[in-house]
Design a protein around this nucleic acid. Structure first.
Length: 160
DNA sequence: GCCAACGTTGGC
DNA sequence: GCCAACGTTGGC
């Protein structure tokens, strides 16, 4: 599938970890709560069914890529933005004109060896990886096929 | 807990 | 449209 694209998503394991994804029904969840326009544009316009995703733990010990997920449903409105009681509620987003979108992702591989941020720095071929750029805070980032394979190989993936 | 980097908000 | 103030992210 030469058409496939690759991504990296960040999650704080305190809030939602890779293990949480694995424990979810069908190892699948909707990726809600993205409230950044650049990340939203990737979700709404870039991410396609079948794309593969590196799952990264931020604000963690250690910070690391811990597994791979697959996109099982393309962009649809993030309903948590409509819920007044949800922490991600956004009154600007309307049901008839949603501001925020989400996709569904399914866990497919766990890394036997989590690939830490420190591991990634200095790896040949990852010099331009978005995650490693100074000040990069995007929670959804594009990854090249080559970057994806390098990181995946470092992690020693095991099927779930 | 600190703080640098970045995004958003709002006064003008 | 500018930009200072503020809030958030996320590594350390």
């Amino acid at each position: 599938m030469s058409d496939r694209h690759y991504w990296l998503v960040k999650s704080e394991p305190n809030a939602f970890s890779f293990d949480d994804l694995v424990a979810s029904p069908e190892r699948t969840t909707y990726w809600d709560g993205v409230r950044n326009y650049q990340a939203r544009n990737f979700i709404r316009d870039g991410i396609k069914k079948g794309d593969l995703v590196l799952f990264y733990h931020s604000n963690a010990e250690p910070t690391a890529v811990v597994g791979v997920a697959r996109v099982t449903r393309e962009a649809y409105p993030d309903h948590t933005a409509f819920d007044r009681k949800d922490p991600h509620y956004d009154p600007k987003s309307k049901r008839e004109a949603p501001t925020w979108y989400m996709v569904d992702v399914q866990a497919v591989e766990r890394f036997v060896r989590p690939v830490t941020l420190a591991d990634l720095r200095g790896v040949k071929g990852l010099e331009k990886m978005a995650l490693l750029q100074k000040g990069s805070r995007l929670s959804v980032q594009p990854v090249t096929a080559r970057e994806f394979e390098i990181v995946r190989t470092l992690g020693t993936p095991a099927a779930l």
